[in-house]
Simulated scan of single mutants.
Amino acid sequence: MILFDMFGVIARHQSPDGKDRVAAIAGAPDTAFWDAYWGLRQPYDRGDVTGPAYWRRVADELGTDFDERRIAQLVEADIASWSAVEETMVALIEELAAAGRPIALLSNIPEELAAHYEERHSWLKRFQVRAFSCRIGHAKPEPGAYLWCLEALGAAPDDVLFVDDREENIRAAEALGLRGHLFTSPANLREALGLSV
Rank of each mutant, 00 (worst) to 15 (best):
G27I: 12
D20P: 00
I79M: 03
V197A: 08
A131S: 10
P157F: 07
Y44I: 13
A32W: 10
F162S: 05
I103K: 00
D60L: 14
D159I: 03
P102E: 14
K125F: 05
I2Q: 03
V163L: 01
V58I: 14
T50A: 13
G51N: 07
G47Y: 10
I79Y: 00
D158K: 07
R166Q: 12
A77C: 08
T184S: 14
G47T: 09
P29W: 04
A99C: 10
L189V: 02
H121F: 01
F162P: 02
G137K: 12
L92V: 02
V85K: 05
Y146I: 08
E68Y: 04
L161P: 08
E61Q: 13
L106Y: 06
P157L: 06
D165G: 02
W123S: 02
A139K: 04
D20S: 14
Y146D: 05
L124H: 11
F132R: 04
V163H: 07
T64K: 00
D20M: 14
R171S: 13
L182V: 03
T64Q: 00
P43I: 09
G194M: 04
W38G: 12
I93V: 15
F162E: 06
G63L: 10
A152F: 04
R41E: 11
G177L: 07
M89K: 04
P16C: 08
R190I: 01
D67E: 09
D35S: 12
L113D: 13
Q73E: 15
P157V: 07
A72I: 05
E68V: 05
S107Y: 01
H181K: 06
T50R: 00
F127H: 05
L96T: 01
S107C: 08
V197C: 10
A77G: 09
E118H: 15
